[in-house]
Simulated assay, not measured.
Amino acid sequence: MTFSANLGFLWTELALPAAIEKAAAAGFDAVEFHYPYAQNRAAVKAALAATQLPVMGLNTERGEAGQNGLAALPGRQAEARALIDQAFDWAADLGARNVHVMAGFASGDAAREQFIANLNYAADVGERAGVGVLIEPLNAFDAPNYFLNRIDQALAILAEVDRANVRLMFDCYHVARTEGDILAQFDHARARIGHVQFAGAPDRGAPDLGAVDYAPVFAHIAASGWDQPLGAEYKPGGDTDQSLGWLASLGTA
């Protein structure tokens, strides 16, 4: 397996360029970001060029404090699309493969219609930029009232949007918390998956801790033909370097 370091959780005490260098030194094959927008973009690009690490993706901004994206919020279309434009501008400039369009806290038919409209907008922007679009169900324990919270809900939205460049972010951690059977859900969603992430469950620590045995999970994902880096999106609980023992033990799974 190959792995991508999610620098939204790993080496967060460092500026993003230094964190990219740390990921390369640790042996990661790629990086991904949450919200890089306050960083010096030129310095981030220089670090990516120096390390030659690809960028698997980044997120649209959350919006105001207490929000978790705007794309599914009725009445916020102009703001949501400004955040989409910002994210794709950064993604194209950094050579990122995907943008995760954050839905936000919302519910109901109007929210669903708004989310689909904004995903179609993002698909158009992404096609011009050469960057994919991702959506991700978040578990209701960590993100109560987040609009998108289950795999089948996401698959239904993807079917309605029906754009080749709009795909599912399959986070093993969120699936483990909400739906339990990671392997069954992975197989169910496999044709629409655009990126895979993982963390220990239920505490979102390193993948060699917690209730999920990731050795068979990674082996199953590899056996499906998946050959892209898997995103390590976990909370190290202190020093990131001290949390990386799993790279050796699970990297051969």
Rank of each mutant, 00 (worst) to 15 (best):
D213H: 09
A91E: 11
N68V: 08
S243I: 10
T178S: 14
G66H: 07
Y35E: 07
D241M: 07
F147T: 08
A129M: 04
A123F: 06
A184T: 03
I157W: 07
C172F: 03
Y173Q: 05
L168M: 07
A111C: 08
D29C: 08
G104W: 05
E136A: 12
T240F: 02
A143N: 13
G8K: 04
T60P: 02
R112D: 12
F105C: 11
D89P: 01
K235Y: 11
L14Q: 10
N40Y: 00
P17L: 00
G200Y: 00
L138M: 14
A96R: 07
D89Q: 12
V101Q: 07
Q228V: 03
A201S: 15
T60K: 04
E79A: 15
V55L: 09
A140H: 13
A92I: 10
V131Y: 00
A191P: 01
G95S: 03
R204Y: 02
L250C: 03
V217C: 03
V175D: 02
L10F: 09
W246E: 09
P229I: 04
I193T: 02
A71C: 03
E61T: 12
G69M: 04
L48K: 12
L7P: 00
D29P: 05
P144I: 13
A154T: 10
A43N: 03
A38K: 12
V101A: 07
L53G: 06
A65V: 12
K45M: 15
G104Q: 07
G200N: 00
A82M: 08
N149C: 08
S224C: 08
A211F: 05
A143K: 14
Y121R: 13
H34P: 00
S224L: 04
D203R: 12
V212G: 07
D162L: 11
T240P: 11
I84R: 02
Q228M: 08
A159N: 14
N149I: 02
T60Q: 03
A92F: 11
P229F: 01
A223Q: 12
V175L: 07
L244Y: 14
P54T: 01
P236D: 12
Q39W: 12
P36Q: 00
A219D: 06
V175H: 06
L10C: 06
T252H: 14
I151M: 08
N40H: 05
Q114G: 09
G8D: 01
L138E: 01
F218K: 14
A24R: 13
G69N: 04
R192W: 12
Y173V: 11
T12P: 13
N145A: 15
K22C: 14
P74Y: 13
F186L: 03
V166L: 00
E79S: 12
A103W: 00
E21C: 09
N120W: 06
Q242G: 10
S224E: 05
L53C: 05
P74A: 11
M56F: 10
V166A: 09
D124C: 05
A46K: 15
E233V: 06
N6P: 04
G200P: 00
A47T: 09
L168W: 06
Y146D: 05
L168Y: 06
T51M: 06
R76V: 02
P36D: 03
S249A: 15
P202R: 14
Q197Y: 00
F33N: 02
R81W: 01
L83Y: 14
A164V: 07
A211W: 01
A215I: 04
D181W: 13
Q39S: 15
R81N: 06
A223K: 10
Q114P: 07
G210H: 08
M1F: 11
G130S: 09
Q185T: 08
V212S: 03
